[in-house]
């Protein structure tokens, strides 16, 4: 695999640099091809052996909305995602604070405990968890969907928030206490406002991940508690060769649009690298 020297002038770029650029271009074209295909498909009445569909229509949107009761599905999706965000932030941020600031017996063990759900395949803990849910009669309920999504989300919030908290100088907290602030006031008046960007970033990331989470949701959800991504999967795999492709495409476009909006909002607050990078810091030690 050819590599280019970092810092070399672009004009002096070697053939290997061009190769890399070409590979990237191919990847991006492929990626855009996928996206545009789905969009075009969702607006075409029929599309077989031609470059473009013969006739444009928006019918697929209306019929998929009705057929899969997307109003309800989207309502569930939004509700689940918001609940997961709120709970995991409320629970994860104080835990992240403690792990960032304090030493206590068993801290390494606790860290490992919060790392495992991120490190393990979701199915590995998802199946036993779903079994327990069904045993408790929670199966196919919205509560179950929220609960399973908390398992990766809480550790994720902790991993995201820890660096944010570490970069706040502890003497700022000491100063607040010397000014007479109680622990609660330190949190509400000083740390809270300082952590807003981090909490916002973590919330958006958890939101995006929860909306996109397939494996865990699929294990416990039922007709009344499917999220959008599970509904699409079910439509693609339903018995009898699946639904009309365009119906699925229309759903996919709606899903993509929602995710894109969230992504654009997210990118206003966080660097793209952060979408994945915070995971590694915890894993690295």
């Amino acid at each position: 695999m050819a590599a280019t020297a970092p810092g070399e002038k672009p004009l002096a770029a070697s053939p290997s640099t061009w190769l890399v650029w070409a590979g990237m271009a191919a990847f991006l074209v492929f990626l855009l091809g996928l996206l545009v295909s789905v969009v075009v498909d969702s607006f075409g009445r029929q599309w077989f052996a031609t470059w473009l569909p013969l006739e444009a229509t928006t019918d697929w949107y209306a019929s998929s909305w009705e057929r899969f009761s997307l109003g309800h599905v989207i309502g569930v999706t939004v509700g689940v995602a918001l609940a997961v965000v709120v709970i995991s932030v409320l629970v994860g941020v104080p835990a992240a604070y403690l792990l960032a600031r304090r030493n206590f017996p068993g801290k390494r063990f606790v860290n490992l405990l919060f790392l495992l759900p991120i490190l393990m395949p979701p199915i590995t803990y998802g199946i036993p968890l779903a079994t327990v849910m069904y045993a408790f009669g929670l199966g196919r309920s919205v509560v179950a969907v929220v609960l399973v999504n908390l398992v990766p989300s809480i550790p994720f919030v902790i991993m995201t928030m820890t660096p944010f908290i570490e970069q706040i100088n502890p003497s700022i907290e000491h100063a607040a206490r010397m000014c007479g602030a109680s622990m609660r006031q330190v949190f509400l008046r000083v740390l809270g406002p300082l952590l807003v960007p981090g909490i916002l970033a973590a919330s958006i990331l958890v939101l995006v991940r929860t909306v996109g989470m397939f494996e865990l949701t699929f294990l416990v959800s039922g007709p009344q508690s499917d999220t959008l991504v599970v509904a699409i999967y079910r439509a693609m795999t339903s018995a009898g060769g699946g639904e009309a492709r365009q119906l699925v495409s229309a759903m996919a476009v709606m899903y993509t649009t929602t995710m894109l909006v969230m992504l654009i909002v997210a990118l206003r607050f966080v660097n793209p690298t952060q979408l994945v990078a915070q995971v590694k810091e915890a894993r690295d030690d």
Binding site: N169, S171, H174, A175, M178, C179, A181, S182, R189
Partner: peptide
């Protein structure tokens, strides 16, 4: 007691006025 820190430890999100007022508000 009052304390002055080596790193100043001012609240970065509050103005000078509100930094000074913090303890009184507490």
């Amino acid at each position: 007691f009052g304390m002055v820190f080596q790193s100043y430890a001012l609240f970065p999100h509050l103005t000078v006025e509100r930094n000074v007022a913090f303890g009184l508000q507490m």
